[in-house]
Amino acid sequence: MKKQKRKHTPEFKARIAFEAIQGIKTQNEIAQEYEIHPITVSKWKNELLSRMPELFATESPRKNAGKDREKDNLQRKIGQLTMEVDFLEKKCEQLGIPVKGRLS
């Protein structure tokens, strides 16, 4: 019978990687203590080290994605409102109604 693959939480992975970075114990000792493979400890350590600069970046990619999405929505809304104003100005002109507050 096959062994089921264990799923580890991000908190668990971070704790293991942090222990490996500290260097108090060897990766083999950490692996034995938590019953995981030493290569897994090494992978988590390398991933933590490679992603650390992202933690201190001025803006995260998630924030940028949210700003881009908001900007696209606002531009779409501006386009819609511009079309509505043009339509209403045209109808006012056809009906002979003066348009107040417009410089055109």
Rank of each mutant, 00 (worst) to 15 (best):
I39L: 10
E70M: 09
E47H: 03
K67R: 13
G66D: 15
Q22E: 15
A31D: 08
G79S: 08
K71S: 09
E59L: 13
D68K: 15
I16C: 01
G23V: 08
I16G: 00
K71W: 04
D68P: 00
Q27N: 07
K77F: 13
G79Q: 05
N64H: 11
E70L: 12
E33N: 03
L81K: 06
E33V: 04
L48W: 10
I16Q: 00
Q27S: 02
A17E: 05
L49F: 07
G79A: 10
K71T: 07
E70R: 13
K25V: 02
L74W: 05
I16S: 00
S42K: 01
E19G: 02
Q22R: 09
R62Y: 09
V41Y: 03
E59K: 15
R69T: 13
R51V: 03
L48N: 06
A31I: 08
I24K: 13
I24W: 05
K63R: 11
T26R: 04
A57M: 10
A65L: 12
R15I: 07
I30D: 00
R15T: 08
K45C: 08
E70V: 08
N73I: 09
P53K: 07
Q32W: 08
A14D: 15
P38Q: 01
Q22G: 11
E59V: 15
N28T: 12
R69L: 12
A14W: 11
I30C: 01
M52K: 08
E47S: 09
S60A: 12
K63C: 06
K71L: 07
I24D: 15
F18D: 14
A20N: 09
A65R: 15
E54L: 10
L74C: 03
K43F: 12
L55Q: 15
R69N: 09
T40C: 05
I36S: 00
G23K: 06
A14S: 14
H37A: 14
S50A: 15
E33D: 12
H37T: 09
T40K: 00
I30P: 00
I21S: 02
K43W: 10
E29G: 04
L81E: 09
T58L: 10
G66V: 11
